[in-house]
Design a protein around this nucleic acid. Sequence first.
DNA 1: CACTTGACCTGTCCGC
DNA 2: TGCGGACAGGTCAAGT
Length: 291
Amino acid sequence: MPELPEVETVRSGLESLLRGRIIDAVDQIWLPAFPADNDLIQSRLSGYHVSAVRRLGKGLLIDLDNDWCLVIHLKMTGQLVFVDPDKELHFGAGHPSDSLVDNLPDRSTRTVFHLGTARLYFNDQRKFGWIKLMPKNEAQSLPFFSSLGPDALTAQLDGSSFSALFKRKVGSPIKAALLDQTVIAGVGNIYADESLWAASIHPGRKVRDISQAEWNTLLVELRKILQLSIEQGGSSSRNYINAEGQRGAYLDFAAVYKRQGLPCRRCTNPIIKIRLAGRGTHLCPICQVEP
DNA sequence: CACTTGACCTGTCCGC
DNA sequence: TGCGGACAGGTCAAGT
C-alpha cells in the first residue's frame, strides 16, 4: 500500500475535498470492509459534517462534527477516491484523471459514501483494507495505533533518538526494523529500500552493527526522501492513486525500487533485487556493502 | 521476548 | 493461447 507519503497525499486531498461537507449515506458494497451495524452507521454518519482528516502512521482518520470518526487503513491496494460530478465539468475531455475515476464504482469498490451528488469511493482490490466507525477518543487506543512508534516525519526526532528507537531490534536486519511500525511509523518497502541506498547501508546489515554516523545519515536521507515523495504526490507502482484519482510521480526519482538491472545513480553498476525480511529488496551491491 | 514465516486476497506477469 | 507459479505498496498470528 500506500506508505507515509501516499497516505499523507490522500489525507491532504481528502481534507480539502471533504472538510465541511455533509455525509448523507453509506452504501456497503462488500460488508467485511466496514463491519458494523448498518443502522448505527447511518445514524452516526448521516447529516454530520467532516471536520478534519488526520493521518497516524499509515492510517487515516476522518473526523465528524460529532463524537465519531472513521478509521481507515488502505493496506496494499486500498484507494479513497472522491468524485464530484459538478466539478468534473470543469475538466476537459482527456484530463489525466478521467480514465481512472470515470468508471466508479467498479469491481474493487467496497464502500461508497454519499455527499450530495458527490461520492467517496473506498476501493480495494485485495480486500486487506478496512474502515471502522469509532468514537474519536477510542480510535487511538486501537492496538494498531497505540503501538505505533513515532512518525518518521515528526520534528522531535534527531540522530540519537532515532538510533535509540532500534535498541529493541539489535538482531534484526536494518530493513526489517525499518518496516516495523512499532519502531518507527510510516516507512514501507519502497522508502526502506530508497533510504538505505541513499545512506549506503546494505539492508541485511544487523541493527547492532550500524554506526551512529550511519543512523544520522539514514534519518536525514529518509526524511528527504519522504518529503520529496510527498511533493511528487507519492509513488504509483501499480494501484496507488490520490483522492482525485491521480497517480504519483515519485518513482521517476527512485534510485533502486523497481530499478533492478538499471545503472546505480551513484556508481553505474547494475541495481539488483534480492529477497529479505520476506520482501522484494532493491540495492546497489557496490555502494551498499554486504555485512 | 526477539525474530521469522506464512496467511489474508485478487490480479498480473513471466516462463513453459 | 493456456496454465502454473511467483509476486505485489501491509499487517497479524503463529511458529522457532
